[in-house]
C-alpha cells in the first residue's frame, strides 16, 4: 500500500496546479503513507527503509521552497515571482515547469517531513 500512496501523493502534487491537489495535501498523503507503514511494522524498521531522516526532509523542503524564490531575483523580478518554462508541448500533453511548482515541492517535503518527525517520535514512546 505504501508505494501506491507515495505515487498517489506525487500525482496529487503535480496536478495541484490545475485541478484539486497540491503540495500540502500531497505532503499529508506521503506522511500518512509512512505513518501507516510505521504502525504496521514499527518505527525502527520504517526508519531503516527510508534513506533520509524526517528532520532532513523538513529542512530540505524549507530550503527548496526558499530557493524557488531565487530564480525570480536572477531574472530581475521581485523575490518569488513565478517563472515558468514550458519544456515540451505536444498537442495533447504539455509539461510546464516553473518555480511555483518547485515551491510546491518544498511545501510537500516540509509537510511530509514534519508529520513523520512528530509521529515517529510520539510512536517511539
Amino acid at each position: 500500500m505504501r508505494p501506491m500512496l507515495v505515487i498517489l501523493s506525487l500525482v496529487v502534487l503535480y496536478r495541484g496546479h490545475n485541478e484539486p491537489g497540491g503540495g500540502f495535501i500531497g505532503g499529508l498523503m506521503l506522511g500518512a503513507a509512512y505513518i501507516l507503514y510505521a504502525m504496521a511494522f514499527g518505527v525502527n524498521k520504517t526508519q531503516k527503509s527510508i534513506f533520509f531522516s524526517p528532520v532532513n526532509l523538513t529542512a530540505t523542503g524549507l530550503l527548496v521552497a526558499l530557493l524557488s524564490g531565487v530564480p525570480a531575483l536572477l531574472a530581475g523580478d521581485v523575490f518569488m515571482t513565478g517563472e515558468w518554462v514550458t519544456f515540451f508541448a505536444y498537442s495533447a500533453f504539455e509539461l510546464k515547469l516553473g518555480t511555483p511548482l518547485l515551491f510546491d515541492v518544498g511545501v510537500y517535503l516540509a509537510v511530509a517531513g514534519m508529520l513523520m518527525l512528530v509521529m515517529f517520535s510520539i510512536m517511539e514512546e
Binding site: 491537489g21 524564490g69 513565478g82
Partner: peptide
C-alpha cells in the same frame, strides 16, 4: 500564474 486550481495558485504563487 498559469494554474486553474485557484486555491493552490493562491498558496504557491500569489501568497507564496
Amino acid at each position: 500564474a498559469f494554474g486553474r486550481n485557484i486555491v493552490n495558485v493562491i498558496l504557491v504563487d500569489f501568497r507564496a
